[in-house]
């Protein structure tokens, strides 16, 4: 019975994706029709320069936005978890988390207004495009990062930091050797969250982007209007393969790191 439930659950999650991967290898020109095995859509994908350009841009924006969001959100999370009482703390906490609940349309529009106003006041940003999308995504991602980092920090045993200080560590050393390793998983999670958020955002990007800033999701949506081709299936399959590869690499690295350090210290002792 429980196996059946598991199979149903997994099927619910994975069947649509498997279907997409399957059709990516179809020779037919209609995205949902099987026409024999072929790699022609992967070849078409590789030749589609506009699409590849958009994918590359999306990737770069996501990398930058995730890093910026983790830094900013990490600082906000730190303040919320560690600064016990200051004037306006509750308000600050609520405002920092607001992008989580605000409709993306509102966030996008308000960011657009901000960028336009900034351009009028400071002359920067001179045009809307990749930079504005990156900043917008960083803003959105920082809210998520703040929540993740704050919750990890408040679970952290302050006694560990006190013990480190007691053993002669300066505040900077305590942070580097004790606090940072403890919150590293949360920082990594925050980064990944912000990364995926940026990679598949279309609403906010549509508001704040310009002619030179067409991200992959924006391009896909614009093509939807012209009708789907199985190239999109191939793109989906390629992204899936990349994601699986990245996850596999991360898991392998984590595994090697933990077992390696254990063996190493054993020898030293």
């Amino acid at each position: 019975m429980s196996r059946l439930m598991l199979a149903l659950g997994l099927g619910f999650l994975w069947l649509p994706i498997l279907l997409l991967v399957g059709y990516a290898f179809s020779a037919s020109a209609i995205p949902f029709q099987w026409g024999g095995f072929s790699l022609r859509w992967f070849a078409a994908l590789a030749a589609d320069e506009r699409l590849l350009e958009a994918a590359w841009l999306s990737l770069r924006i996501a990398l930058g936005a995730a890093t910026l969001a983790t830094l900013l959100g990490g600082l906000v999370g730190w303040v919320l978890a560690r600064q016990r009482a200051f004037r306006g703390r509750a308000l600050f906490g609520a405002l920092a988390g607001a992008p989580l609940v605000l409709p993306e349309v509102v966030t996008g529009l308000s960011l657009l207004l901000t960028f336009v106003a900034l351009q009028g006041l400071l002359g920067w940003p001179t045009e809307r495009g990749a930079t504005t999308v990156l900043l917008a995504h960083a803003t959105l991602g920082a809210a998520y990062a703040a929540v993740v980092v704050q919750s990890r920090l408040s679970q952290l045993d302050r006694g560990l930091e006190e013990a480190a200080a007691d053993l002669g560590a300066s505040p900077a050393q305590v942070f580097r050797t004790i606090t940072l390793p403890q919150i590293a998983p949360a920082l990594a999670a925050a980064w990944l969250l912000a990364f995926t958020l940026s990679l598949d955002d279309v609403v906010v990007a549509s508001f704040v982007s310009g002619p030179a800033g067409t991200t992959l999701p924006m391009l896909l949506f614009s093509r939807l209007r012209l009708g789907l081709t199985p190239e999109i299936n191939a793109l989906g399959a390629a992204i899936l393969a990349l994601a699986a590869l990245a996850l596999g690499l991360a898991a392998a690295m984590l595994h090697r790191h933990s077992s390696h350090s254990g063996r190493d210290r054993g020898k030293a002792g």
């Binding site: 045993d157 006190e162 254990g262 002792g269």
Partner: peptide
């Protein structure tokens, strides 16, 4: 308050 991410030696 042992450091959980470090070995006994460390």
């Amino acid at each position: 308050a042992l450091f959980p991410h470090l070995s006994v030696f460390d």
